[in-house]
Amino acid sequence: MLENKNLIQKINEILERFNLSIDVHIEAKCPLNRNIGGKYNAGDHSITLFLEEIQSQSRWMFPEEDVLLEYALVIFAHEAGHATDPYLQKLVELYDDTEDELKKRKIELLVEVQAWKIARALVREVPEKFFNKIKRISLEHHYEAVSARMENAGVA
């Protein structure tokens, strides 16, 4: 079980080190019944982490390792990547302004790639191989969605 106290301490250290002003909430379970470990809310500039989903994902990806705290920090860093992405608002506007499904999937992918790029800078102490595995698995769905749309459009 992840100790909230340790997680909160580490998150506060990251917030302080990078001078980030983001409200962070920790909940037991995602109310949307989705397997997401965290969510950035642009409306109130907050991040919510969902512990049950984080634990489930961590056990699935790293079954033989006790890396729950590190995994949670990577999820937090990814959400903080969204929160600090200087291009996020413009990308959301582009997404909202297009009806082309391929372009929408590409924009979603770009939003996620940007967040992962920023996240890496926030958790440099996390081993690169560990970080990259989480990132790769997280992005698979987005790459597949773009690829499928390209095939449907006769591009690939």
Score class of each variant (00 low, 15 high):
E3C: 04
E3N: 11
I8P: 05
K10P: 01
K10G: 02
I11W: 02
N12V: 03
N12E: 02
E16N: 14
R17G: 01
N19K: 11
V24R: 00
A28P: 06
K29M: 12
N33W: 07
G38L: 13
G38C: 12
Y40I: 08
N41R: 07
G43I: 04
H45I: 00
S46G: 03
E53F: 13
I54A: 12
S58D: 03
L68S: 09
A72M: 06
V74W: 01
I75K: 04
I75P: 07
F76Y: 04
H82E: 09
A83D: 00
T84V: 03
T84E: 00
D85H: 04
Y87D: 10
L88T: 02
Q89W: 08
L94T: 06
D100F: 02
E101L: 11
L102H: 05
K103W: 08
V113M: 06
Q114L: 11
R124L: 12
R124D: 08
V126D: 00
E128P: 09
K129M: 07
F130Q: 07
F130V: 06
K133E: 11
I134W: 09
K135G: 00
H142T: 13
A145T: 00
A145Y: 00
V146F: 12
M150S: 03
E151I: 09
E151Q: 14
G154P: 10
G154K: 04
G154M: 03
